[in-house]
Design a protein around this nucleic acid. Structure first.
Length: 568
RNA sequence: CGGAACGUAGCGCAGCCUGGUAGCGCACCACAAUGGGGUUGUGGGGGUCGGAGGUUCGAAUCCUCUCGUUCCGACCA
């Protein structure tokens, strides 16, 4: 490709609304342009990257035995009524209607559509197992789209759905998909981690996420410093930190704590460690309000909490009036003694003794509180975030934390959808049986942003060579005027093209500095600079985008040198 | 969803407070010089000032409504 025949529009200035580096660089390099909130146009340059990722995904999915297909992006509302997922997805669903006022959703995911396809298409156990996938545009009306294509509303996803006669067969495909995902992200060239995950609105039993490690990641992932355990913090089991509850050692006493509301303030005021305090959070319950109790220095894990039977989902904190009705005090003074609601305590809290909590009387706290003697709880659950330094739940090592960008998520769905939609096949005994199902998603557009987050410097993008829009850039110095430079550049260009190298030749009439800065921003892995200086010695110059060190190479061997570099 | 801010040329912004015929930088077009790190000069094209309504002799500027965008927040207990 010659730049004169391509669309290359770069910007020197950082766009004002781009927060994270990948978004800034994607706009500056001209990969994407914004159309509206969470809506992006992929320019030819960006599309080349996108398609490389798609092709790697295709190759690995095909190799794992999955079959590519394509479903409609627009889905009839009736399908979603069958599974009752409209409420689960809530406002994220983009509702549309046609001229006859029929209701549709623009698909945020395709479990319903594929299950409908399969229930009509598959009748016998002999046709199973089978795994379908597609690469397609989705729409999720995010509350707050941000970070460019990292969290956009319209995006491209690879989604796969497998169907089975047994759980064992499902697990087999699940493991194959896990391996395929590992292969895909490795081939793209990113540093990633597979972690245990909550299955959220998709549902099902087991699920794991694939995270590209990056400081700008929206998720916190916890991992053992010496073992294999790794989990999203939403899911990461938080072990009880106190092995055995001590017998009460202090008198219960009520102390005046005026204006001391936060745990920090109360602990300082009473001169105790935060680990000797508990906080009581009142949330909406299924039948009655629920108190969730965690140690003062711990965070409530909202995902774990909303998964509890007694707690309403999604999680909602009670407002001041509701708190008053339950605890008869302001929010800053809620405590566990004589609290008339269902009380669920964290594992660590269950074994605390002589602790501090609110007195259910505004401006007062209790000290020396002990379970059984002073207060009772109804359930012990894991409801806090695991934190750095906790023992790993599998007993091996200590937990550490990193930030991750979720680029893939695989689920064992079981028969949630097949039962709801009556997707059955006849088994060997000729009896109807609901199919077991798995689903496997991968964010294609997000992968581009993740790749940049992990591979850039202050000059621009540094593409991993497997997804670079071009692998070689030829930068001629004074192409317009120097006959000799032009001939050398054209010749190398033609030679590389003939060998199937994805090469871009900059034949624009721009000055050298401008050209070099542009290609540093663009991040093309291999760059060849052709100028009169080196040509005097029949040489041209090679630079790798990673180290940017110049190497003089004989003009006649440059093509083969590059081909070797590309193989490496 | 709650809070805040911002909408003036493709991009980044000034002008608004104190109303008087719209400006700067980048980008773009032409010409010339330059030709190994975003070069320079001269000339040029491009804007219903987000939209609607109001106040006024007169509105980018003041008022009201509306649309859009962005940021922050959604555990004080």
């Amino acid at each position: 490709m010659r730049t004169s025949a391509f669309h290359l529009v770069t910007r020197k200035e950082t766009p004002q609304d781009a927060e994270i580096i990948s978004h800034q660089l994607m706009i500056r390099a001209g990969l994407i342009r914004k159309l509206g909130a969470g809506l992006y146009t992929w320019a030819p340059l960006g599309l080349r990257v996108l398609q490389k990722i798609e092709n790697i995904i295709r190759e690995e999915m095909n190799a794992a035995g999955a079959l590519e297909m394509l479903m409609p992006a627009v889905q009839p509302k009736e399908l979603w009524e069958e599974t009752g997922r409209i409420d689960d997805f809530g406002g994220q669903l983009l509702a549309i209607h046609d001229r006859a006022e029929r209701d549709y959703f623009f698909g945020p995911t395709h479990e319903e559509v594929i299950t409908d396809f399969v229930r009509n298409e598959i009748n016998s156990y002999k046709q199973l197992p089978i795994n379908f996938y597609q690469i397609q545009t989705k729409f999720r009306d995010e509350i707050r789209p941000r970070f460019g294509v990292m969290r956009s509303r319209e995006f491209i996803m690879k989604d796969a759905y497998s169907f089975h006669m047994s759980h064992e067969s499902l697990v087999e495909t699940y493991e194959a998909m896990k391996q395929a995902y590992t292969n895909i992200i490795s081939r793209i060239g990113l540093d990633f981690r597979c972690v245990l995950a909550d299955s959220g609105a998709i549902g099902g039993s087991g699920s794991q996420e694939f995270h590209v490690i990056a400081d700008s990641g929206e998720d916190a992932i916890m991992y053992s410093d010496s073992g294999d355990y790794a989990a999203n913090i939403e899911k990461c089991e938080a072990v009880g930190l106190i092995a055995e509850r001590q017998a009460p050692g202090a008198e219960l006493s009520k102390v005046h704590t005026p204006e001391q509301k936060t745990i920090e303030e109360v602990a300082n005021f009473l001169n105790v460690d935060k680990t000797q305090t508990v906080k009581t959070l009142l949330v909406e319950g299924v039948e009655q309000p629920v108190a969730l109790v965690v140690r003062g220095d711990h965070n409530l894990n909202e995902v774990k909490a909303s998964n509890l039977l007694a707690v309403a989902s999604p999680l909602r904190m009670l407002n001041d009036d509701e708190i008053k009705a339950v605890a008869n005090c302001d929010a800053g003074s809620i405590g566990v003694k004589d609290l008339a609601c269902h009380i669920i305590v964290d594992r660590t809290v269950a074994n605390m003794s002589d602790f501090v909590c609110g007195a259910n009387d505004s401006g007062y706290h209790l000290t020396g509180v002990n379970w059984e003697r002073d207060a009772q709880f109804h359930e012990v659950q894991d409801i806090r975030d695991a934190q750095v330094g906790d023992p790993s739940p599998d007993g091996v090592g200590t937990l550490q934390q990193a930030r991750g960008i979720e680029v893939g998520h695989i689920f064992q769905l079981g028969n949630k959808y097949s039962k709801a939609m009556n997707a059955v096949v006849l088994n060997e005994q000729g009896k109807s049986q609901a199919m077991e199902m798995g689903c496997y998603g991968m964010g294609v557009t997000r992968m581009v942003a993740a790749a940049i987050e992990q591979n850039h410097d202050d000059k621009g993008i540094i593409w991993p060579s497997n997804i670079a829009p071009f692998t070689v850039a030829i930068l001629p110095m004074n192409y317009q005027k120097s006959e000799r430079v032009r001939r050398a550049a054209d010749e190398l260009y033609e030679t590389l093209l003939a060998q199937g190298v994805e090469v871009i030749l900059d034949d624009r009439k721009v000055r050298p500095g401008f050209m070099m800065s542009d290609f540093e921003l663009l991040g093309i892995p291999h760059q060849v600079i052709i100028g009169d200086r080196a040509l005097d010695e029949n040489e041209v110059e090679y630079r790798n985008r990673i180290d940017m060190e110049s190497k003089r190479i004989n003009r006649d061997t440059m093509a083969s040198f590059l081909v070797d570099q590309l193989k490496a």
